[in-house]
Simulated assay, not measured.
Amino acid sequence: MSVLSAIRAPGVVGRVNPVAKLLAALVLGVVLLLSIDWVSAGTALVLEALLLPWAGLSLRQLVTRTAPLWVAAPASVVATALYGRDDGAVLLHLGFVSVTEGSLSLAGAIGLRILAVGIPGIVLFATTDPTDLADGLSQVLRLPSRFVLGGLAGLRLVGLFMDDWRQLALARRARGVADAGGPIGALRRFGQQAFALLVLSVRRGSKLATAMEAKGFGSDAPRTWARPSTFGARDVTLVALGVVIAAAAVTAAVLAGTWEFVLA
């Protein structure tokens, strides 16, 4: 079986080395942030959509995990359309708000770019085990073990935030803590729980750091790894696909005459 046909297997992205997924997403992100045109972002988004079946995520999982993007992208489009560029013909003018052809073009480019940059990053974390990522960063990229293990511990703690939030809400309810109704009460309740979660996270992080240091995780001595992390042909293929998508996006924008370097 060829490497390309192997990578097409359902859920195969989850078996690719996390370093390869990180590099592919990084290449796409950097290239898409070099311009603010809609052609490059649209091209990258279409090509990414064609590759999504390889991630092995169901439609429900994909929609659930990318839900923040479907909120952020429309909000950014509306805000940019109302307060973006003033060039081009004026399509709508309401007091201090003006919608022009330039602002609409910029709004579309930003909305598409949020999706094109965000979706690969979400798929990366949705199909990656934090321990595998730490193994790859240490064994493939040769990053310092202290940095990698500390980051791994932090990623493991992130998954506890929702459980902690629910426990704090239940504890408040059990104690009969009363809050004023309406938006003000909801905002106050959110602020109190967020502060309690911050205090809990700082305490837990401090205890974890002390425990890891006591067990020698911060030592500079050579470290062995329970699971080897290899970088093979499938991983190279995924990185190459990321480069191809980025190159196709830039080429399409240049040929369409819409490429607009952000630093120009």
Results as ranks from 00 to 15, higher is better:
105 S>Y: 03
242 G>A: 05
217 F>E: 05
83 Y>W: 14
255 L>D: 03
186 A>F: 13
15 R>Q: 12
142 R>C: 03
169 A>V: 12
54 W>M: 07
235 D>Y: 03
61 Q>N: 04
137 L>C: 08
20 A>S: 11
90 V>P: 01
126 A>Q: 06
144 P>H: 03
126 A>E: 07
242 G>C: 04
253 A>G: 05
175 R>W: 08
128 T>L: 04
261 F>P: 02
140 V>F: 01
245 I>L: 11
106 L>Q: 15
166 R>D: 05
245 I>T: 08
257 G>E: 11
124 L>W: 03
214 A>F: 09
20 A>N: 10
201 S>A: 15
248 A>S: 06
99 V>I: 15
103 S>H: 02
260 E>Y: 02
246 A>P: 00
75 A>S: 09
240 A>P: 06
81 A>R: 10
16 V>D: 06
150 G>S: 12
2 S>R: 10
44 A>E: 04
216 G>L: 07
200 L>V: 11
53 P>C: 02
178 A>T: 11
110 I>G: 08
60 R>P: 01
84 G>R: 09
78 V>C: 11
257 G>W: 13
129 D>Q: 02
132 D>A: 14
69 L>G: 13
72 A>H: 08
160 L>P: 00
25 A>K: 00
115 L>Q: 09
170 L>P: 01
184 I>A: 14
38 W>S: 07
46 V>M: 07
167 Q>R: 14
129 D>S: 00
68 P>L: 12
249 A>D: 08
105 S>H: 10
199 V>G: 09
256 A>Q: 14
87 D>M: 06
224 T>L: 12
52 L>Q: 03
112 L>D: 07
84 G>S: 08
247 A>V: 14
248 A>M: 01
13 V>R: 03
23 L>R: 00
221 A>M: 01
22 L>W: 10
39 V>Q: 07
255 L>E: 09
72 A>T: 11
259 W>Y: 15
102 G>E: 05
192 Q>V: 05
85 R>K: 08
200 L>I: 10
212 M>A: 04
123 V>I: 15
251 T>S: 11
194 A>M: 14
60 R>W: 03
118 G>I: 10
168 L>E: 08
169 A>T: 10
93 H>Q: 13
6 A>E: 15
166 R>H: 07
232 G>V: 09
247 A>N: 06
49 A>C: 09
112 L>E: 13
140 V>E: 02
70 W>H: 14
62 L>Q: 05
100 T>H: 03
243 V>F: 01
204 R>K: 15
134 A>D: 06
118 G>Q: 06
9 A>I: 09
73 A>H: 14
253 A>S: 15
153 A>Y: 00
180 A>T: 14
155 L>I: 05
